[in-house]
């Protein structure tokens, strides 16, 4: 049986991770790459692209759509599109309906209201401050010495919660140090930190207007405490696509298939 043909490749050059997704004629994912973003993003994307093309046997030119904060640096891109449109397209394709999409990335977070056709109707971004983004969790996980993929589980392991009142990541760190010095349990601090992050996200959700269902994409979607606390704050169940972290690159790849049958 011959290998399925790669019709387009999407590249999401994010601030924390760099993602690539290759899709076939029907929009199915044929291959992907994900690794931590390096300083020379243009070289990194070029290398990952070469690996993916080689793995999937892509010899000729295929459309390559770039998204993410480094999208303008991707030399092989045939087109660049913002993360908002790409995440919307990817999640709509994966889950099959409109609603309210929350994308929490490493450097910014977005709330996107999707129409029934999958197009963004309205959106809001927090990109001025690390609070409310994955960076907030990364920063505090490093300070507390808890691996990032354990943060959510540890936060949910207790009913106690220590409120974090600082809205700034840097000041929150000082507050954590004070709480630890007072002997407050680590899990209670973690739960409070997640609550603070979710508070910012939910405020954005209400600003855009919550149209159910609520969906979550981006790397932070893997954090079970974020999901649980968003559900608690909004009263809505949170739906996840199959690969939340790849949705930007997947959406970019789908946009690359426009004019062909997949999109």
């Amino acid at each position: 049986m011959s290998k399925p043909e790669v019709v387009a490749i999407g590249t999401d050059a994010g601030s924390t991770t760099c993602k690539l997704v290759a899709v076939g004629q029907g929009g199915e994912v044929l291959g992907s790459r994900l690794e931590a973003t390096q300083p020379h993003i243009e070289l990194q994307v070029g290398e990952l692209l070469g690996q993916l093309r080689s793995e999937l046997g892509v010899d000729g030119p295929v459309p390559c759509v770039a998204t993410g904060y480094g999208r303008k640096l991707v030399k092989d891109a045939t087109r660049s599109v913002t993360e908002i449109t790409c995440h919307a397209r990817g999640v709509f394709r994966d889950l099959g309906h409109g609603g309210t999409l929350v994308d929490i990335g490493g450097q910014d977070s977005k709330v996107i209201r999707l129409g029934n056709n999958g197009k963004p109707v309205d959106f809001m971004m927090n990109d001025k401050c690390a609070a409310g983004t994955g960076r907030f969790l990364e920063y505090t996980s490093a300070r507390l010495g808890v691996p990032i993929d354990e943060l959510g589980r540890r936060a949910l392991s207790t009913d106690r919660e220590e409120p974090i009142t600082s809205t700034c990541t840097v000041f929150a760190e000082s507050e954590i140090i004070s709480l630890l010095a007072r002997g407050v349990a680590l899990e209670a601090i973690l739960r409070g930190l997640h609550r603070a992050l979710v508070g910012r996200i939910v405020a954005m959700v209400h600003n855009v207007g919550l149209t159910p269902p609520l969906m979550l994409s981006g790397g932070v979607a893997h954090n079970e405490a974020v999901r649980a606390l968003i559900e608690e704050a909004t009263g809505e169940r949170v739906l996840l696509p199959r690969e939340p972290q790849l949705m930007g690159a997947y959406g970019a790849a789908l946009l690359g298939t426009e004019g062909k049958s997949a999109a």
Partner: peptide, 14 residues
């Protein structure tokens, strides 16, 4: 700023 341009670009795309 890049952030401002990204928002405007996303708005134009919509």
């Amino acid at each position: 700023s890049r952030q401002v341009l990204t928002r405007i670009e996303a708005f134009v795309e919509t």
